[in-house]
Design a protein around this nucleic acid. Structure first.
Length: 729
DNA sequence: GAAACCCCTG
DNA sequence: CAGGGGTTTC
């Protein structure tokens, strides 16, 4: 027997790994992480609702400003905390007292408007006062501008002030630990403590104010704590972003070492090519601003690139022809284009990460920010393109060039990013996680629209469009994330999904491979903007240009073996499974070398090999089970001669097999398979008739026969796109 | 002893 | 279809 199988050890090793790699766990952890961060974030930011409105209006409407979102958020977290705590020793109580005194002075129009901005020095004063008011009461009062009081007045006021303060402190404590109603009763008690300090009417007003202040204060304290947590989490995110940056530049350099010394240079050169003066200015300024903050700088860079891409998109007339001419031109050497494409793709993906992080914070509108914080529309804007959209092309290039391959995003190397649960993903993920047809419910975005399919195209998954990536803003690493293209049952499985994105029908027939439709579907249907119907332009791109670029890319393979290899799929997709099943019609016992030949788009490792072998092992298992079953059935039916056993395309056995390996029945089963099946059936029949089935290993003899009946698998199966070609025939 | 294979289970 | 335990083969 040839070495068909290597499952035992390999699978033992790899399967354990698969279990550890579980997507769900990663999703869940990341989800929890960011949900927490988001909650904390909003809690901390809510007090500044008005300012935030402005901020996120900018985020939504001015793409140019989006680049700074995260940095601003980080900055705000800091500045807000700074404003609240100008001095480490400033106690919350002293702030509360200060607020009360401001109230009494009638100088505080609103908490948000002036409470923070005007408190710096006053808080200090209050702090000093609370610590040393007996020694220098005037200092406490000086902010109120009454330096000419007599000593008696000063003493009296100070005394009153201290008593009132004590009462307020007690109230504050009560207020912090009781409901508002309870706090109100506490205020009433306070009147007994210091009834003589103010008139009943004033006292009532003051108490009212105080109760409000207590609520505000308690909330402030709570928010401060949350803010602290947020800050910590943001720091963690910064750290992760820094690592992303490193990886980014690492890849960046490797893809563009031709004319660039480092990532900055290459980026600058890119920018100079496509940016106009205005945008260039802002980006440069942005970059300068970000020099102090690495992750922020990184974010800005990624976003600036996106912006320049968008700017480029707005000039299709100028940019399109230019792109097309540059390929053949000497101005752009062979491969430069690919490098550019890859760079843009990298940048796009990076900014998706950033967008996703921001979106995590923005996805859950808070009470205070009901409408001013809509979901970002970045991805859609980015992919709502015309035929010249380079970015879209690059996205599709990957999908097209490698057919059903899951192209690991260059961000793969972010596997080292210490995301919780995101272990070193170098092996395949769960082989075929879901079935195409039976799992449709998983595809359809739930009513909410926010828990869209977990099955994303590699593009959308890594680009941060999807809920899945939404849950792990840092793209699920290398993740040979199964590309759920329903090629297996195109006609059957599509309608339901297409309903959600009918615009994908706009795709030109030329490129309407089902896979392309799927990719388009995914891109159009990212849940980032559930309430925003995708633009009809989303699915419209130039098939010609696409094909051209695909050819160009393919022709450059030999120049970029490493790049191409890095774009090879690290996992097996449902389409690979379907392909394997079709191949089973030709070969029941493929060697591992053969598998490597016919699955050349897969980056083979032990796991992949064993996985494929296991697939065929499972195919054989089903095959032989059917044979045995049918043979026994024939015997029971009174068949006595193998001559009576024949397999036609009408017989039950064939239908069962066809249903299993060719479910959609869109592949014409080769005649040879019928012959082999018939031989197998007769082998089983004869063995059973001869009573060999009493031997526990009686099937082995049959296996030995059948394994010699393998025939050549057609060359077309060596093509990564063989499914499209086969099914179009 | 490792690899290949078989068988069973979920 | 994946996983794992048991058995056989080399």
């Amino acid at each position: 027997m040839p070495d068909h199988d290597s499952t035992a050890l390999l699978s033992r090793q790899t399967k354990r790994r698969r279990v550890d790699i579980g997507v769900k766990r990663t999703v869940g952890t990341a989800s929890a992480f960011f949900a927490k961060a988001r909650a904390t974030f909003f809690s901390a930011m809510n007090p500044q609702g008005s300012e935030q409105d402005v901020e996120y209006s900018v985020v939504q409407h001015a793409d140019g400003e989006k680049s700074n979102v995260l940095r601003k958020l980080l900055k705000r977290a800091n500045s807000y905390e700074d404003a609240m705590m100008p001095f480490p020793g400033a106690t919350i109580i002293s702030q509360l007292l200060k607020n009360n005194m401001n109230k009494n002075g009638g100088t505080e129009p609103s908490f948000q408007a002036s409470g923070l901005s005007s408190t710096g020095s006053e808080v200090h004063q209050e702090d000093v006062c609370s610590n040393s008011s007996r020694d220098s009461p005037q200092e406490c009062l000086s902010p109120f501008g009454r330096p000419t009081m007599s000593q008696f007045d000063v003493d009296r006021l100070c005394d009153e002030h201290l008593r009132a303060k004590r009462a307020r402190v007690e109230n504050i404590i009560r207020g912090m630990s009781h409901s508002p109603s309870v706090a109100l009763r506490g205020n009433e008690n306070e009147r007994e403590i210091a009834p003589q300090s103010v008139s009943p009417r004033e006292s009532y007003r003051e108490n009212k104010q105080q109760s409000f202040q207590q609520l505000v204060s308690a909330r402030k304290e709570q928010k401060r704590e949350e803010r602290r947590q947020l800050k910590q989490q943001l720091e963690d995110m910064q750290k992760q972003l820094r690592q992303l940056q490193e990886k980014f530049y690492q890849i960046y350099d490797s893809t563009d070492s031709e004319n660039d010394e480092d990532g900055n240079l290459s980026e600058d050169s890119m920018r100079s090519e496509t940016m106009d003066a205005r945008a260039g200015d802002s980006v440069s300024r942005s970059d300068n601003e970000m020099c102090e903050l690495d992750p922020g700088q990184f974010i800005d860079r990624a976003r600036a690139l996106i912006r320049e891409q968008e700017i480029a998109e707005n000039k299709p007339k100028r940019e399109g022809p230019k792109e097309k001419e540059q390929g053949p031109n000497a101005f752009h050497p062979e491969g430069k284009h690919l490098a550019e494409t890859l760079k843009q793709e990298l940048n796009t993906a990076m900014s998706q990460v950033v967008d996703t992080v921001v979106k995590v914070f923005s996805s859950k509108p808070s009470r205070q920010l009901p409408q001013v914080f809509p979901p970002l529309q970045i991805p859609q804007a980015r992919f709502a393109v015309n035929g010249e959209n380079h970015n879209f092309h690059t996205a599709n290039q990957r999908l097209q060039c490698f057919g059903d391959v899951i192209i690991p995003n260059p961000l793969d190397t972010f596997g080292s990013v210490p995301m919780p649960g995101a272990t070193d993903q170098t092996e395949a993920l769960p082989l075929v996680v879901r079935k195409n047809s039976s799992d449709q419910s998983a595809w359809a975005p739930p009513a909410g629209g926010h828990h869209a399919s977990l099955h994303q195209s590699p593009l959308s998954a890594t680009a941060g469009f999807s809920t899945s990536s939404f849950r792990h803003p840092f793209p699920l690493p290398p993740m040979a994330y199964p590309f759920q293209s329903p090629l297996g049952a195109p006609s059957a499985s599509f309608p339901g999904k297409e309903r959600a994105s009918p615009e994908s029908l706009d795709l030109t027939r030329e490129t309407t491979s089902l896979r392309t439709k799927m990719s388009s579907h995914h891109m159009n249907h990212h849940p980032c903007s559930p309430g925003h119907p995708p633009s009809p332009a989303d699915g419209c791109f130039s098939a010609q240009a696409l094909k051209k670029e695909i050819k160009q890319l393919l022709s450059q393979e030999e120049h970029f073996p490493l790049l191409i290899q890095s774009y090879m799929q690290e996992g097996l997709s449902p389409n690979h499974l379907k392909k394997a099943k079709l191949m089973f019609f030709y070969t029941r016992y493929p060697s591992s070398n053969m598998l490597k030949t016919y699955f050349s788009d897969v980056k083979f490792n032990r796991c992949i090999t064993s996985q494929l072998i296991k697939w065929f092992s499972n195919f054989r298992e089903f095959y032989y089970i059917q044979m045995e079953k049918y043979a026994r059935q024939a015997i029971n039916d009174g068949v006595t001669s193998t001559e009576e056993l024949s397999i036609t395309r009408d017989c039950e056995l064939y239908r069962a097999l066809n249903m299993h390996y060719n479910k959609a029945n869109d592949f014409e089963v080769p005649e040879r398979f019928l012959e082999v099946a018939q031989i197998t059936l007769r082998e089983f029949f004869n063995a059973i008739i001869a009573g060999k089935d009493v031997d526990p290993s009686w099937k082995k003899a049959i296996y030995k026969v059948i394994c010699k009946l393998d025939s050549e698998v057609p060359e077309i199966f060596k093509s990564p796109n063989c499914l499209q070609e086969l099914l179009h025939e």
